[in-house]
Nucleic acid binder design. Structure first.
Lengths: 210, 210
DNA sequence: CCAGAATGGATAGTCAAGCTCTCCGTTATG
DNA sequence: CATAACGGAGAGCTTGACTATCCATTCTGG
């Protein structure tokens, strides 16, 4: 297929497709002559994936690029998902050292309680988590952190579900993409469900007294 | 306290504080003369909250402004949290009508299964959820949606925890702010925990076979 | 076969967010 | 009283994500 079809099939304007090609987010099409190219269904799928990651996942294009090259990089699923999580995390904001130390302590405690060997690896994912916990403390809302273990147990159940969704797929590429979707869209979906549920529960609880 | 102290105490540069004042995110200080003002500890706390919402929560300043005026608006906690959730949601991307209808059906089903009266209110929160589910389907990953009920049950447990964290507070303002923190930072914290857990679970599962 | 549309490629322009910088006249302070 | 800080307003800057314009090919319908 050619540019116009690629654009129509993916819902991405021609000018934007060209931009993505320039930025290396979309691999070049197959050359049919020095200045003409042909695109495949894989290009359409790739564009749809980019759209999903930016519009629904809220990822900056640079992160999308990093994720896509990790996908194409041919590492193991586990390693690739590591890259995905790093990019998903963004740059953690900096917080005061003492609050950060307190938050790290909480996590260490958590890991110990669950019998994990805790690699205090300075990944951006844990960096973000530490920053969020530290910020809650700095704002004077430690109650959230007091329940950390309970939240974590639920998060573990969610993660088990996530992995179940991915396993059972046979194709290597499918596993990676499903993992990506389960992580990026899964975050949005779970957050949405949580908000729906909050609305419901808080309606019951907060409206009971007054 | 004066500008320099306010800036130092909150970690926000003077120029930025002025900008926030202009944008109405921070209420003006108490006038001591036609062109001098004095700020209070409440201003510092407000600045810290703005920082938390933008840096950790990732909210655009316009949303922060809307959330803050909702807080100051004097509505009930439940109503205020409604505004918070709307702003937190952002503008949902548009998806194909059929995929959206399919996703709405899933949610209706979910509500029915749990005996809820389903207000198909077109809130941005549900709009985002629908968009995320629809996008997953369009990408060919319906498996995620098949487990929706299981995810929802866990989300409900999380929401109950959230509400528990907030209840028990007496001051009206404290309840609102705690709800805000539990929602915005709570999302980040839970997502972080989920990623940690995914890492752990996927290490076990994906590395077992090969 | 040929006029007009489409293509690939490159460059420049646009727009919104979120600051940051510079002035200026006034006010506080050692 | 010198000088530092302040409040207020405006212009400028940077980044991200496109969008528009050219232009020299290349395709395509009549």
């Amino acid at each position: 297929m050619r540019m116009a079809e690629l654009s129509a099939g993916s819902g991405v304007p021609v000018a934007t497709v060209k931009y993505y090609l320039r930025e290396g987010l979309l691999p070049a099409g197959e050359r049919t002559s020095p200045n003409q190219a042909r695109y495949s269904a894989a290009h359409v799928q790739r564009l749809r994936l980019i759209k999903a990651l930016t519009e629904v996942g809220g990822l900056p294009l640079a992160s999308v690029g990093a994720v896509l090259s990790a996908i194409d990089g041919g590492e193991t699923p586990h390693e690739t998902m590591g890259v995905v999580q790093e990019e998903l995390a963004g740059t953690p904001p900096k917080v005061s050292d003492e609050a950060a130390a307190w938050a790290s302590g909480l996590l260490e405690d958590l890991a110990h309680r669950h019998g994990w060997t805790w690699h205090s690896e300075e990944s951006r994912a844990t960096g973000n988590l530490v920053a969020a916990l530290a910020t809650a403390k700095e704002l004077g809302h430690e109650k959230l952190a007091e329940r950390l273990n309970e939240y974590f147990v639920l998060a573990l159940r969610v993660a088990e579900l996530d992995v179940e969704v991915v396993t059972g797929l046979t194709s290597f590429d499918k596993i990676i993409e499903a993992g990506l979707v389960a992580t990026v869209l899964g975050d949005r979906i779970f957050t949405g469900l949580r908000h729906l549920a909050q609305e419901h529960v808080s309606r019951e609880v907060l409206n009971r007294a007054p």
